[in-house]
């Protein structure tokens, strides 16, 4: 008798009726799954995330400057400003807000009274919002290629001279982060690895989210709100964006877990969701 026939005989293992009934009685005694429990768990998690975001929002911008000298303590700049719309904030936790530590810029703002004032002044095309923190007081300015506008006092200064030009160049220089390439590279690498792995395992790449694109209505609506806030209100607060990214990653994981048809797809899509969240957070942090 060959091995295959012997193996096939092992399929005749008799059923143990006593064991069968014993296990069945244990299972039937178990309660039905508590659906409400999972709902409460999700609500609690969302409330916790929102609470942390609120806490960071409330405490993030508080300044505790104790210096009493007349030296400039901080200079914050915000790119993409517009005339009559001041948007800079006194914290680098806002997207686009950068703290300047340039000696020339500091010297320039310390001696700003010496600049020639403009009657019927105006700003040029390229405007940068600037907040100068001096002696615990904030002074708001808008600097352009032709003039400087003191927002608090409504005074325009003539933008002439080599020092003004140098300061404008320093402040207006686009904020290019040398690590920015990580994000597109990460997205390409992530998709390539997924494609290569599916090809290696001969898995037909399919949409892991099924037909439930409705799940993305909330993230899409949030994205629209974020862009609207950034366009009409002001710079976005990074901790809140990070919280939203984590929430988005969590939603992705839930959708993937629910709709992935095989364990391998679940595993790959889980890694992808985690990587997407990390890339989003990196993107937020570097801008």
């Amino acid at each position: 008798m060959d091995i295959e026939k012997k193996l096939a005989e092992l399929n005749q293992m008799p059923e143990d009726e006593q064991l069968k009934r014993k296990i069945q009685s244990v299972i039937v005694e178990q309660k039905a799954p508590k659906k409400r429990g999972s709902v409460w768990k999700e609500i609690t998690m969302i409330v916790a995330i929102c609470s942390v975001a609120f806490f960071l929002f409330v405490t993030g911008t508080s300044q505790t400057n104790q210096a009493t000298s007349n030296e400039i303590e901080h200079i914050y700049t915000y790119f993409g400003g517009e005339e009559n719309e001041f948007r800079a904030r006194t914290s680098t936790l806002y997207v686009g807000v950068q703290e300047m530590t340039n000696a020339t810029t500091t010297a320039f703002f310390e001696h700003i009274e010496t600049m020639e004032k403009m009657e019927n002044g105006y700003l040029g095309d390229y405007i940068v919002d600037v907040i100068v923190v001096q002696n615990n007081e904030q002074h708001r300015y808008q600097i352009s290629n032709v003039s400087l506008y003191d927002v608090d006092n409504g005074v325009y200064y003539n933008g002439e001279g080599a020092l003004f030009g140098e300061v404008f160049q320093v402040l207006h220089k686009p904020k290019i982060n040398s690590y920015s390439f990580i994000v597109p590279l990460g997205v390409i690498l992530m998709n390539f690895l997924q494609w290569a792995y599916y090809k290696y395992r001969k898995i037909k790449a399919e949409n892991p989210f099924g037909d439930n694109w409705g799940f993305f209505a909330v993230p899409l609506f949030s994205l629209v709100c974020i862009f609207a806030y950034h366009a009409f209100v002001g710079p976005l607060y990074k901790p809140i964006l990070i919280m939203l990214s984590i929430l988005f990653g969590y939603m992705l994981l839930r959708v993937v877990k629910r709709h992935a048809k095989t364990y391998i797809i679940l595993k790959v899509e889980t890694y992808k969701a985690i990587a997407t969240t990390i890339l989003l957070i990196i993107l937020i942090l570097i801008y």
Partner: peptide, 26 residues
């Protein structure tokens, strides 16, 4: 039940463990 218990019984060597895993499965 029969096939699942048989599969688990061949995959693990212990009878009690096989019972527990079968129960967990169902």
């Amino acid at each position: 039940f029969g096939k699942i218990y048989q599969y688990i019984r061949y995959m693990v060597t212990n009878a009690e463990l096989a019972e527990d895993l079968t129960q967990e499965t169902f």
